[in-house]
Design a protein around this nucleic acid. Structure first.
Length: 603
DNA sequence: CTAGGGTTAG
């Protein structure tokens, strides 16, 4: 349809005056984040009969979208009889902001089929709805559309395309490279996107070359290359750049803090954190999660308090990050604190936050609390079910997990590949070998899920733990994909469990090829030979270890009591209270023996 | 365009 033909309703003088009354309230409506206010204005709009106005509706949609009220947003959209490009663009952007990529595309296709042509805003919004590698085909489709209709006059369009490609893994980065080369005009944003994409794809050298080549660099350019080094763990190089870059901003500082947290250097992280002139919510999230990941509960908790005292209210991202860190290190205390602060400050939480809570409670061993959160979710999604299922499965409640699985199907949820990992894992932990095999071989026909490497991993664990090593080994060889290190590692674990020395030797050969610098593999083999009393083979392996120059650092466990970290290694007597500790260990071993546990070391 | 972000086999 020709845009000129869109009929404009005739405005009566009363209409104009009604609208003028609301004008002031409408002007900032699309930026309003207070749902109550929006609903008030909405009521006034309805009263004034302005809800079908092409000027008012986009503002309403944007406002509802900001408050994550997509049902209301779509409703506002549906009030319009003949939506135009602008309205569709607003809807697409709204879906995109609320990570409803599919709905964004649905809106796009609907727009096309009603004969409305996309403009210079449509494609960039749509490209934003393509998060990551799995959306590469959609990015390619949009690319061909753009080429067909020639919207490249505005650099915003090719820049968006470049950025989307560069976030789509190595294949996408190749396409981005090509596009970057043929782009007639490049601004600093084009360069930044290209450099960021290369750095993310692990092409740090090429990224650095482009960075050096750029005609002009802004703070984002510096931050991008800085992050490239940080993600590669090259903190020395990152620090060097950080020191000499002009105009550091809060992102530059936060990037450095994040890098030091990732390599575990909390002293440097804290020093920079204390020194940085401006901190925001992201900065606080980074440092708190950093401490939490290291298991330093007291530091993390006191910083969380400081953050709230400084008047910052954690958003979804902050809550999810901190909870994920708690889950990783089992910091139930901090997790509960976050939960309490959510309950205190929020009327309701997004499903994403509740899912993070389930996972945190489950991973910290508080399955009952996980269940309470799970039961209380108004709108469960597949991730909620998966988190709960996985939690039950990994804590030995295999049957309960399978029951949850049937409930999930009863309530009409479609299992995805993660669900099936949980189901197979549940079978493994409940010793239900036959059931697991059944699920594995029927998952494609029953649920349309083609077994992936993760599912094979579960199967190998299932068969291996059940002592069916030969079958497990055959399965590894019949896999349609290349077995990865986890697969071989699982099999090796099973060999150790059942003292299969021959198989272990073969498995380790594969493992060493995949992880040549991992000292754990050979040392595991050595332990297996030792357990079988094959001391010649043990010394052979030791020789192999020495000839490759690989040394296994002795494994150490550490616990944290009252903010003091205590580290322990094998037969460690250096701790001041080691006598008491060993007394306790002996008592525990006795208790375990009484319930039928046979410790390996005492065999 | 840059910093934090829910479920995934050893």
């Amino acid at each position: 349809m020709n845009p000129m033909q869109v009929s404009t309703p005739i405005r009566s003088p009363t209409w104009v005056s009604r609208r003028r009354l609301l004008e002031e309230k409408l002007s900032d409506l699309h930026k309003c984040t207070n749902l109550k206010q929006i609903k008030q204005v909405h009521a006034q709009i309805l009263k004034a009969d302005l809800h079908q106005d092409l000027f008012v509706a986009p503002k309403l949609i944007a406002a509802f979208s900001l408050c994550r009220q997509m049902v209301l947003a779509v409703n506002a959209f549906n009030q319009i009889q003949e939506p135009n490009v602008h309205l569709y663009n607003t809807l697409i952007r709204a879906h995109c902001q609320n990570s409803q990529s599919l709905q964004a595309f649905a809106a796009f296709f609907e727009m096309q089929s009603s004969g409305i042509f996309p403009d210079n805003f449509t494609y960039p919004f749509l490209l934003k709805a393509c998060p990551g590698q799995s959306w590469l085909p959609m990015v390619q489709m949009i690319h061909s559309h753009i080429e067909k209709f020639g919207f490249c006059s505005d650099i915003f369009v090719p820049n968006s395309l470049l950025d989307s490609y560069s976030k789509c893994g190595s294949v996408g980065v190749n396409a981005a490279r090509k596009l970057f080369q043929v782009m007639g005009e490049r601004d600093v944003v084009s360069w930044n996107s290209m450099i960021g994409g290369l750095a993310k794809a692990g092409e740090l050298g090429e990224a650095r070359r482009l960075f050096d080549e750029m005609p002009e660099r802004d703070t984002v350019s510096w931050n991008t290359i800085l992050d490239g080094y940080v993600k590669a763990g090259e903190m020395n190089k990152a620090f060097e750049l950080f020191e000499k870059m002009p105009g550091r901003n809060v992102v530059s500082w936060s990037t450095m803090v994040s890098g030091y947290c990732k390599v575990g250097d909390m002293d440097m992280a804290r020093m920079l954190f204390d020194k940085m002139p401006v901190k925001n919510l992201v900065t606080w999230t980074i440092i708190i999660s950093g401490y939490a990941q290291k298991g330093l509960a007291n530091e993390a908790i006191s910083l969380y308090d400081n953050m709230e005292e400084s008047g910052l209210k954690p958003d979804d991202g902050a809550v999810i990050s901190v909870l994920a860190a708690c889950a990783e290190s089992g910091l139930l205390g901090l997790g509960q604190k976050v939960h309490a602060s959510i309950k205190r400050t929020r009327f309701k939480c997004s499903t994403q936050v509740l899912n993070a809570l389930i996972d945190m409670y489950a991973k910290c061993g508080s399955l009952d609390k996980a269940y309470i959160v799970f039961d209380g979710i108004a709108k469960r999604d597949v991730v909620s079910w998966n988190a709960m299922l996985q939690g039950l499965a990994t804590h030995g409640h295999g049957e309960k997990a399978l029951k949850l699985f049937s409930r999930m199907k009863q309530e009409g949820f479609k299992p995805d590949k993660v669900t099936l990992v949980g189901v197979l894992c549940a079978c493994t932990h409940a010793g239900l070998v036959e059931e697991g095999i059944q699920y594995f071989y029927t998952m494609e026909s029953n649920y349309g899920i083609v077994p992936q490497v993760e599912h094979y991993g579960c199967m190998i664990d299932l068969l291996g733990r059940g002592g069916r090593l030969k079958e497990a080994f055959r399965l590894v060889h019949s896999m349609p994909m290349e077995p990865n290190a986890i697969i071989w590692g699982t099999l090796l674990g099973a060999c150790r469990m059942h003292n299969d020395v021959d198989l272990a030797g073969q498995v380790v050969d594969h493992l060493v090829k995949l992880e040549p610098s991992d000292p754990g593999n050979l040392s595991m083999l050595s332990n297996i030979y030792a357990a079988a009393g094959d001391w010649d083979s043990v010394s052979n392996v030791r020789l192999r270890m020495r000839s490759t120059g690989i040394q296994k650092p002795s494994g150490a466990s550490s616990i944290e009591v009252d903010d003091e970290v205590h580290e322990f290694t094998v037969s460690d007597r250096t701790h001041p209270k080691s006598d008491k500790i060993y007394q306790m260990v002996d008592r525990l071993v006795d208790d375990l023996k009484q319930v039928g546990y046979v410790p390996k070391a005492y065999q």
